[in-house]
């Protein structure tokens, strides 16, 4: 029995996979990144249709249900991404300041 949720998520995964492939073709991401995203989305698809597949991992990591593993992983990943974003923002800010300062001095001459 396939649920509505599974259909929607499957469509999304197909869409995400195609995005990754297109971005690889346009050289916006490298091969390693492509492999990473493909594995991630394929894993998501496996978990979607066979939730029990995560149980061995759950036993290994000592968490209640297998489905909890991706939830925990997602939180860790989100923290990491927010951290990256903050670092990026910091360096963008520094660059903006550099330009503003340089223009101010050049204009004075």
């Amino acid at each position: 029995m396939i649920s509505i949720l599974q259909i929607i998520v499957t469509l999304f995964i197909v869409f995400a996979l195609s995005r990754a492939i297109f971005r690889f073709r346009d050289k916006q991401i490298n091969l390693l990144e492509l492999v990473f995203w493909c594995l991630l989305w394929i894993a998501a698809g496996v978990v979607l249709f066979i939730p029990q597949a995560t149980n061995p991992i759950a036993r290994l990591l000592n968490v209640g249900r297998g489905i909890d593993v991706p939830v925990y992983l997602s939180i860790v990943l989100l923290f990491y991404l927010v951290f990256r974003l903050y670092v990026k923002l910091d360096s963008i800010n520094q660059n903006i300041t550099k330009i503003v300062r340089e223009v101010a001095i050049k204009k004075k001459k």
């Binding site: 903006i96 300041t97 503003v100 300062r101 101010a104 001095i105 204009k107 004075k108």
Partner: peptide, 8 residues
């Protein structure tokens, strides 16, 4: 001197 935008 003038900063075009506020930088602190």
């Amino acid at each position: 001197l003038k900063h075009a935008i506020n930088r602190g």
